[in-house]
Each structure stands twice: as C-alpha cells, then as structure tokens.
Computed example of a mutant assay.
Amino acid sequence: MDDSSENVYLLASKLIDTSGADAFNQALLSLINSATPCESVFVIHFHKNSRPTILVAPDSTLLTDKIMDEYLNGFYMIDPFYNAFKTGLSTGLHFIKEIAPDDFFESTYYTEHYCNRGYEEAAFIINLDNDSQIQISLTVIETPATTATRQRLQAISPLVISAYRKHWQNIENTQETSQHASAIIHEQISNVFRNFGGGLLTERESEIAILIIRGYSLIAIAELLGIAHGTAKVHCKNLYSKLEINSKSELFSLFLDDISDK
C-alpha cells in the first residue's frame, strides 16, 4: 500500500468517526483535498418547496457574504445545479460544464456574479428523497480538471456520498427550524419569476426572458420549448422592445431589480 492510499484510508476513518459532529465538515474537506486542491467548498441543502440552506461555506469575508446574500435572495433560481436538481439530477459526481445551459459561461450572472468564476466546478450530489438534495460543491484549482483528477474524485465519490447521508441523518432535526421561513421567502422569489416583466410580457415572452437570464441561447431555447428558432428570435425581439432594452445585460439588470424589490 503506497503512502497516498494509506492517507486516504486514515481520512476516511476520521470522516466516519466524526459523523454528526462539528468536526465532520473539516474531515470532509480534508478528504476532498486529498483528491485535488480546491479553492472553496460549499455544502448546500436544496428543497423544492423552500429556499436553499447553506450548510458549509468558506470563511466569511465581504465578498463571500455578498455572494451568499445574492444567492439566497434569488440567484439560486438561475443556478445550473439548482435547476438540474429540479429536473432530477442523479446522485453522483457532476461537473458544471456537463449540466449548464449552452450560453451560461457568457451570461451576465456568470461573468459578474458567479462565485466560482474561472475555476472548474464539480459537485457531489446526494438525493435524500424526491424533494430534497445535498450538493457538495467544490471549485477545482486545476483548470480544466485533468482525467486523473476526475478519476480521483470519482474514486472517493461513493465514500463522500455514503458518509454524508449518515451525517445528515444525525443533523437533520437541527435544520428543520428555519424551513417554514425559507418556504415563505422561496414563494416570494418564485412569484418574481412567474411575473417577470411586470405584466408587459406574454407568458411565453416571460418564459424566454428567464431562460436567457439563466444562460440559454435562442437556439437552445427553441429546442427546449419545441418552437422554431425564428419564432424564438421574434419573441426575444418583442420582449426587448416591450421592456425598452437592447442587451442581455440590461435584461439581467431588470431581473436584479425585481428580486431586490421582492
């Protein structure tokens, strides 16, 4: 047995031993960093009927606090991982490039607000039931991640997922107290999405506007909605005209105004 394998076994035993305790999170980070150095690690609890809960985040700074505030105040609704969760993302290791909309990395959200900009992002996904999911999101410093790095992350994936399931069983009751308030806030944010455009847009135009904000190209939107590309372009032109804007960045600014006013 080589030194690296022995170290992984020691880290794994510590992860299991600390299940349900505060020390579990540090043991989890140590195991992940044994596979590849990460710029940051977030652990998020997604639930279909409430706002996400941040379970683990990097040390508080003005930047991280701003990012977390923006995310919880509505940006999670355009997060590729959150939307993949809503459509049934499977348990396992996933990279953002595999699930993000085709124009996501050119979107205003990504270029101006996304916390992991410039890094390769991956996540261990743990489905708890039909309505909730744990995401252990990590930003891999090595960009793009090599085949060897992906293989190392895949190798520890079953351990990370099983250990966190056990850990969640031990801490779940402590997370339930804020669920009601999160559900109310989530409904307010959902109303922003349902009514985007302030009554100026048709239902289809509003739907397309939100997809543009999330990072879909018009070609991808047409395919997703089952309409002709030309029809999608007409809808886009009409919604830009009604909102008196000329660019995706202006569209995003209107969205930002809406979630700020909710």
Rank of each mutant, 00 (worst) to 15 (best):
Glu6Lys: 13
Val8Pro: 00
Tyr9Cys: 06
Tyr9Ser: 13
Leu11Arg: 06
Ala12Gly: 11
Ala12His: 07
Lys14Thr: 11
Leu15Pro: 03
Ile16Asn: 06
Ile16Pro: 01
Thr18Ser: 14
Thr18Gly: 01
Asn25Gly: 01
Gln26Ser: 13
Gln26Phe: 06
Gln26Lys: 12
Ala27Gly: 07
Leu29Met: 10
Leu29Gly: 00
Leu31Pro: 00
Ile32Phe: 01
Asn33Trp: 05
Asn33Leu: 04
Ser34His: 15
Ser34Gln: 15
Ser34Phe: 05
Ser34Asn: 15
Glu39Ile: 00
Val43His: 02
Lys48Glu: 14
Asn49Glu: 13
Asn49His: 12
Pro52Thr: 09
Leu55Cys: 09
Val56Met: 14
Asp59Ala: 04
Thr64Ser: 15
Asp65Ala: 02
Tyr71Gln: 00
Tyr71Phe: 13
Leu72Glu: 03
Phe75Arg: 09
Ile78Lys: 06
Asp79Trp: 04
Tyr82Asp: 05
Lys86His: 09
Leu89Phe: 06
Leu89Ile: 15
Thr91Trp: 08
His94Gly: 01
Phe95Ser: 03
Ile96Asp: 01
Glu98Cys: 11
Glu98Trp: 08
Glu98Asp: 15
Ile99Asn: 04
Ile99Gln: 04
Pro101Thr: 10
Pro101Trp: 07
Asp102Pro: 05
Tyr109Glu: 03
Thr111Lys: 15
Glu112Arg: 12
His113Gln: 04
His113Ile: 02
Tyr119Pro: 00
Tyr119Lys: 09
Ala123Arg: 01
Phe124Cys: 04
Asn130His: 10
Asp131Asn: 11
Asp131His: 05
Asp131Pro: 02
Gln133Asp: 03
Gln133Val: 04
Gln135Phe: 00
Ser137His: 01
Thr139Asn: 08
Ile141Leu: 08
Glu142Met: 02
Glu142Gly: 03
Thr143Asp: 05
Thr143Val: 10
Thr146Ala: 10
Thr146Ser: 15
Thr146His: 08
Thr147Gly: 08
Thr149Glu: 05
Gln151His: 10
Pro158His: 06
Val160Asn: 02
Ser162Lys: 05
Ala163Asp: 05
Tyr164Ala: 00
Tyr164Asn: 02
Lys166Thr: 12
Lys166Gln: 12
Gln169Thr: 02
Glu172Ala: 13
Glu172Ile: 09
Gln175Ala: 09
Thr177Ser: 14
Gln179Gly: 01
His180Ile: 13
Ala181Val: 13
Ile184Cys: 09
Ile185Gln: 12
Asn191Pro: 00
Val192Ala: 06
Arg194Phe: 08
Arg194Ala: 14
Gly199Asn: 07
Leu200Thr: 06
Leu200Phe: 05
Leu201Glu: 06
Glu205Pro: 06
Ser206Thr: 14
Glu207Tyr: 10
Glu207Gln: 15
Leu211Pro: 04
Leu211Tyr: 11
Ile213Gly: 03
Arg214Ala: 15
Gly215Leu: 02
Ser217Gln: 12
Leu218Ala: 09
Leu218Arg: 08
Ile219Phe: 11
Ile219His: 11
Ala220Gly: 10
Ala222Gly: 15
Gly226Trp: 09
Ala228Asn: 13
Thr231Cys: 04
Lys233Trp: 02
Lys237Glu: 14
Asn238His: 14
Leu239Asn: 04
Ile245Gln: 06
Ile245Ser: 06
Ser247Met: 13
Ser247Phe: 14
Lys248Gly: 13
Ser249His: 12
Phe252Asp: 01
Ser253Asp: 14
Phe255Leu: 02
Asp258Met: 12
Ile259Pro: 00
Ser260Gly: 02
Asp261Asn: 15
Lys262Leu: 09
